[in-house]
Design a protein around this nucleic acid. Structure first.
Lengths: 188, 188
DNA sequence: GTCTATAAAGCGATAGAC
DNA sequence: GTCTATCGCTTTATAGAC
């Protein structure tokens, strides 16, 4: 694997677990097997530029999972519940270590590092668009789909946070069931 | 105001906005108007002990808002929507600066600082208990109330995060409406 | 592109006078 | 309880050889 990609992956992984402030460039250099000089060679903008790349990387990763799981089921309500279950399994498999790949960095940067914040917001919007598209293709009116997508992503995010802090799959399992019921109640 | 409380309030405020790692003891000492010596006098356990006190403080603050807003409306669905609106207004009023008082610290500590994580989980559980109690008093069966309370808190948390990063009230407004609909659909 | 060395600043934490 | 000074370490970032 290319050095630059190793650096991005390590940064994404570390910031997913520790956040932006707690992740040091030395740690990134060590974990990725690149020297500090190489890190600055590829990312002359330093830590902030690395964080943006990590947010983009984590955002794509989450989007891939979402896209694949949504395609696996026809009914959007069942599909969203499957996404929640998928997240619950990933969470347990990592022993509650791997939550949302970008949420800590997004919150830390809010109001203080505008380009990181904007990158995170764009990834969130892409996730919502995936959910919204699934709903529209199943016949939901555009505004209903757009609004439901907001709440689906919000609820998955919140439940993943609760699952991680509480070290339990339950918040995600319940979120999946409740979201499915909510989506069904709007069925066209 | 007593020195100790000034320190706790400043810590809570700073960690709400910046998180644990990015908040320095020097900054706490400066913002609270107490010297570093005083900070260590009241919190010999240092930064970790301060974080626990801040999480407790922020947790109580959020619980107070929740309790008051829930009491203001009879119907639990309307009451939860009112909570979401209240959060949206607070968010806009602070220009998207003041999100959930403990979520960044909770996520940063997950799996790495067990006593901080546990304190955060206890505060989350207390919030869920407030929602669950409101539902039970309105006739919802105990298990339905408990499960709905999980999703209500998850969704509010996720929507508050989305509102902060996206600098928009919309995620919270939508979350309130959708949660009200979900709760109503379980009405006994 | 990779590597080492280092600068400049800030960190958490402690000591001890008052 | 309050205050200042300081220790030891780590941080981001840069310089320059290879």
């Amino acid at each position: 694997m290319k050095t630059k990609e190793r650096i991005v992956r390590s940064t994404a992984r570390l910031m997913q677990r520790q956040g932006y402030a707690a992740t040091g460039l030395k740690q990134i250099s060590q974990e990725s097997g690149a020297t500090l000089g190489s890190v600055y060679h590829f990312f002359p903008g330093g830590k902030a530029e690395l964080a943006i790349a990590a947010v983009r990387h984590g955002g794509k990763e989450f989007a891939d999972m979402l896209r694949e799981t949504l395609e696996r089921e026809d009914d959007p309500a069942t599909a969203i519940a499957a996404c929640a279950d998928e997240l619950a399994e990933g969470m347990r498999a990592s022993q509650w270590q791997d939550g949302c790949p970008i949420v800590i960095t997004a919150l830390e940067s809010a109001g203080r590092a505008l380009d990181i914040q904007r990158a995170a917001e764009e990834e969130f919007a892409a996730w919502r668009e995936l959910v919204s598209g699934k709903l529209r293709r199943t016949g939901y009116p555009e505004d209903v789909a757009r609004e439901l997508a907001h709440t689906v992503i919000s609820t998955l995010e919140g439940a993943e946070m609760a699952a991680q802090v509480g070290e339990s799959e339950e918040p995600l399992r319940l979120a999946g069931r409740h979201l499915a019921r909510l989506i069904t109640s709007y069925r066209p």
